[in-house]
Amino acid sequence: MHYHVNGDIVPESEATVSVRDRGFMYGDAAFETIRAYGGSPFEWDAHADRLRATCDALSLDHGIADDELRRRVRRTLDANDLREAYVKLSISRGVQPGKLTPGPTTNPTVVVIVSELPRGGIAGESVWSGPATADVVETRRVPDAALPTRAKTHNYLNGILARLETDADEAVMLDSSGAVTEGATSNLFFVRDGTLHTPSLSGPVLPGITRDVVLSLAEAEGIPTETGRYEPDDVLCADEAFLTNTTWEVRPLARIGATEIGEGDETVELGGGDVTAQLADAFDALVGTRHYAGSRD
């Protein structure tokens, strides 16, 4: 593999950063995980906007234009001859004097890494082999007043500690008052009586790119949608549930803890339901239209 490090394409063995880089020392860095379909980034503008918002939250003025960042992503995909890929774009403040208070960002560290993923769209294949399982964990989501929820930073200890509590595919995290927020790496949706629900962004919930796409698709499909504050029992009693993120796209949720979602419904063996399937199909169709036009999609 070849990666993009500070303006250059280098072999994986040479893709290194300084041990004094603030991203390594303090987690003082921003990142985005992006999916490439057919050689181009999915929802690039939304990812670029969220990366910019994270950098603003960190007061990390790296001075690199969005078009240049996209060019680096493209060069990394081309260097590895990849069209269907996972992409991670990271920006740190770089090497600075060893003190907690950062100085001006005069020499940021910018890294793009990629790895192969199956193609998407109607003719694609899933990166997961079956519906997800999850557990509600004790680790609480960090409140927005302590660490900006909308910032995707290298400091991912909150999610790591949550994942360490479970052997399930995902850890469902609550806020300090016990309300459902999200998974360690995903947004959570559930369906009750035909209405799609997801926790509101007024709580400590990351505004997921795939989350936004799914909400837009639900509106287009005529599926009633509500956002709000939900207790764990609201999800446990749901007819259907699913998780969304860049890699999983729309992944049905079969159970949380010992509770099967939609227990008693004939769709439970599929770990999904009519609304989940409808949105997954709509997502695949969107990817196919945008990225594989002219193919058999």
Rank of each mutant, 00 (worst) to 15 (best):
Q96T: 05
G98C: 02
K99P: 00
K99G: 07
T101M: 14
P102F: 09
P102Y: 13
G103S: 08
G103Q: 11
P104G: 14
P104N: 10
T105S: 12
N107S: 11
N107R: 11
P108K: 09
P108H: 14
P108G: 07
P108C: 13
T109K: 00
V110W: 05
V112L: 10
I113Q: 15
I113W: 08
V114M: 12
P118R: 05
P118I: 05
R119S: 06
G120A: 03
G121T: 05
G121L: 10
I122G: 02
I122Y: 02
A123R: 12
A123Q: 10
W128P: 00
W128Y: 08
G130W: 09
P131Y: 04
A134I: 04
V136C: 01
E138N: 09
T139I: 15
R140A: 10
V142G: 04
D144M: 02
A145F: 03
A145C: 00
A146G: 04
L147E: 04
L147G: 01
P148S: 10
P148A: 02
T149H: 03
T149M: 15
R150G: 10
R150P: 01
A151Y: 03
A151C: 05
K152W: 08
K152Y: 09
T153H: 04
H154P: 04
Y156V: 13
L157F: 12
L157N: 07
N158E: 08
N158Q: 13
N158A: 07
G159D: 06
I160N: 06
R163E: 11
R163N: 04
L164I: 04
L164F: 07
T166W: 13
D167W: 03
A168T: 09
D169Y: 08
D169H: 15
E170S: 09
E170V: 05
A171D: 06
V172P: 00
V172I: 15
M173H: 11
S176V: 11
S176C: 01
S177F: 03
S177H: 04
G178H: 15
A179D: 05
T181A: 02
T181G: 00
G183W: 06
G183M: 03
A184I: 01
A184Q: 05
N187H: 12
N187G: 05
